[in-house]
Simulated scan of single mutants.
Amino acid sequence: MAKVKYHYDPETLSYRKIERKKGRAFTFTFLILCAMFLCLIAGAIISPYFIETPHEKALKRENENLKLQYNFLSERVELAENALANVADRDENIYRIFFEANSISDAQRKAGFGGINRYKKFEGQPNSDLIKNSAKRIDILLKGIEVQSRSLDEIEKLAKDKEKLLAAIPAIQPVQNKDLTRVASGYGMRIHPILKYRKMHNGMDFTAPKGTPIYATGDGVVTKASRASGFGKVIYIDHGFGYMTKYAHLNKFNTRKGKKVKRGDIIGYVGNTGLSSGPHLHYEVHKNGKPINPVNFYHGDLSPEEYEIMLEKAAQENQSLD
């Protein structure tokens, strides 16, 4: 029931009933209906932006899940990138330096990603920039792994060669200290004991009793074990990598031509054969066909003090024994 409204008249000091005009009531009702209609239209237009349908909610959840997965994968790719960068850094600044290998530039490690637009197929798709960036990162990562794999294969080969080189280099005395009488003569100009004139002495003479064992100073292959003019019974060992050693004036052999020997193997015994003035071993080291001072190669079995004594004795210009 509609409420009755009254108007107070101050002149008559009484209340007068307010009669509602029929036209105003109609106008008021019409305005209310228009407002309701406009609200319905506005709701129909705006509701899609504020009210989600079940399908939209499902799509939203799927997008959020995909975003989480992308972030997770992006973090994993970043970890792989960092790990590869760490391996590449060690490869470049440790392994390749140690094994004297050529450097691999950053351009070589990431070669093949310039020029044509290899990611054009992703253009026009939703989140194309995100997809292209991810594809590029993965491609660079795969390329880096491929380059690093080849590099490590090379390093592995160099390591094996280095191991062979270290085993091949003449690194010990051919006669043990306990068996030595003395170092009779070193490398350089010396007076020949038989010919009695100064000539180049290309090795070192180790005085020791006849029959004292002689040791191979590095891994290699015996290329000669026979008599030679002036050297008597002599052994040549080819160590590879340009190194060759000679053992002369032997009493007898304990090896033969073509035999593989290891550092420390007994290959013969001290003698006095050939142009020799007494039982001793004449020992030479050659690098790329040229004789070099053997005193530089006794780091395998001498203490620093013993090495200093060896250097002092070897430097004395005296008469050689051959």
Rank of each mutant, 00 (worst) to 15 (best):
C39T: 00
L33V: 09
S151G: 03
K178A: 15
H282E: 07
Y247Q: 11
A225I: 11
L142G: 07
Y236F: 11
M1L: 05
S229D: 13
K210Q: 14
I45S: 00
H286Y: 15
N102F: 09
A159H: 04
Y243H: 12
S151E: 08
A2K: 12
S277E: 08
I145Y: 11
G274Y: 02
A35K: 00
Q173F: 03
A88P: 00
P54M: 03
Y236Q: 06
G300I: 00
A225D: 10
Y283A: 11
G268Q: 10
A228K: 11
N86P: 04
F98L: 14
R182G: 02
L13D: 12
F253A: 08
L31F: 09
R150M: 14
M204N: 09
I214W: 09
A83G: 08
L38I: 09
T207R: 08
I237D: 01
K262T: 06
P291V: 03
R198V: 13
A184H: 13
A135P: 06
K60T: 15
A208D: 12
I97D: 01
T212I: 05
R227H: 13
E306H: 00
E156N: 14
N63G: 04
L73T: 02
M1N: 08
E284Q: 13
E64F: 00
K246F: 10
G112R: 03
D219S: 15
I266C: 08
E78I: 07
I214S: 14
I214V: 15
G43M: 01
R76S: 10
L321K: 09
E92I: 00
I214H: 13
R118G: 08
Q176G: 01
Y70R: 15
T207G: 05
G186Y: 10
E306I: 01
T245N: 03
N93C: 03
L79K: 06
N82G: 12
Q125L: 15
A44I: 03
A42D: 01
T27K: 09
S276E: 06
A314Q: 12
I267D: 06
L59N: 08
M189F: 08
D265H: 03
E123G: 07
K157H: 08
L158R: 14
E64V: 05
F297C: 05
V261N: 02
L38D: 02
E11W: 04
I169M: 12
Q316N: 03
T273Q: 10
G188A: 06
A184V: 07
S151T: 10
R96S: 01
P48T: 11
A168F: 04
I51A: 04
S134D: 13
A88V: 11
E62W: 00
L142F: 12
R96N: 07
D205W: 01
N293M: 01
F72V: 04
N117C: 06
P279V: 07
R198G: 04
K290C: 02
K246T: 12
G218S: 08
V77P: 02
I194W: 02
H239K: 01
I18V: 14
G278W: 04
N93K: 09
Y236C: 04
A228M: 05
T27G: 05
R76K: 15
I32R: 07
Q108E: 15
R198P: 06
S103P: 11
E11K: 07
G114D: 12
T223N: 11
T273I: 10
